[in-house]
């Protein structure tokens, strides 16, 4: 990990009509970092990610991803990032291999290069026996791995993962995270949202979002110490509960 900042946003805000989904969010992420994005459902995590990926235009604020402006250069950003959405993003009626070749071509890779990378990825993610089955029949854990393979095929500098392990059993989650560690070691920056506190522990730094705002940001260790909690989960639950009662 070095000190190069690859994601930086300042006062990012997104309003849908009168509802403010994201309110004045500022943060920065260094290259090679695994940055955890925590928060309850509806806290605004997905909206932030979609703005960073160039899928959604911010109402105000500014930001840079991989050196490109999120307001004016979304297409540049798209070449530099990988994105795995909450939803199942593979074509269910196509096999894993067909999905990989399709998305590879979408990034402009040639068939030969895709073939090499599919080999390498299926090795790393132990996907080989699942590559030629229609992806709709696959257990969710394998589908998520395939989706990860799809979003890393073009060797992105930054990987945005929105709830990548939702509904996946613990054994799968562990191997999934060890893959993320490997990718980070190789220099990729990983921006990940999660519900699971044990996963949050794996992150270099985490931020906690509540009602569109970032209310805490730091290493898991720092945050637990600051709030004098027994662990990350207690800290999170207390923090959210306190906020809710303040609002009431």
């Amino acid at each position: 990990m070095n000190d190069k900042i690859v994601v930086q946003v300042e006062n990012l805000t997104k309003r849908f009509g009168t509802f403010t989904a994201v309110n004045n969010v500022s943060l920065s992420v260094r290259q090679g970092e695994i940055f955890g994005f925590l928060g309850a459902n509806g806290a605004g995590k997905t909206t932030v990610i979609r703005m960073l990926c160039g899928l959604l235009l911010p109402s105000s604020g500014m930001g840079k991803v991989a050196g490109y402006d999120i307001l004016t250069q979304p297409e540049r950003i798209k070449r530099a990032i990988g994105y795995m959405s909450q939803k199942f993003s593979l074509y269910p009626d196509m096999t894993g291999r067909e999905n990989l070749y399709f998305y590879g071509a979408a990034y402009g890779l040639g068939r030969k290069l895709i073939g090499e990378r599919v080999m390498a990825l299926s090795e790393r993610l132990s996907l080989r026996e699942f590559l030629d089955r229609p992806s709709k029949g696959l257990p969710i854990g394998w589908r998520q791995r395939l989706a990860l393979a799809v979003s890393t095929l073009h060797h992105p500098k930054i990987l945005f993962l929105d709830e990548p392990t939702g509904g996946v059993d613990p054994a799968f989650r562990r191997t999934f995270w060890s893959t993320l560690y490997d990718l980070a070691e190789e220099g990729a920056t990983i921006f990940v949202t999660t519900h699971y506190m044990d996963e949050a522990e794996y992150c270099r730094r985490i931020s906690i979002m509540h009602q569109g705002q970032i209310i805490e940001l730091g290493t898991p260790h720092e945050l637990v110490k600051k709030h004098r909690a027994a662990n990350l989960e207690d800290m999170f639950v207390d923090l959210i509960r306190k906020r809710e009662s303040d609002n009431a």
Binding site: Y83, K87, Y91, G108
Partner: peptide
């Protein structure tokens, strides 16, 4: 509906 359109949107395809 499936979410694949969003996946296509983050690719550089115009």
């Amino acid at each position: 509906e499936m979410g694949t359109l969003e996946q296509l949107m983050v690719t550089p395809i115009s």
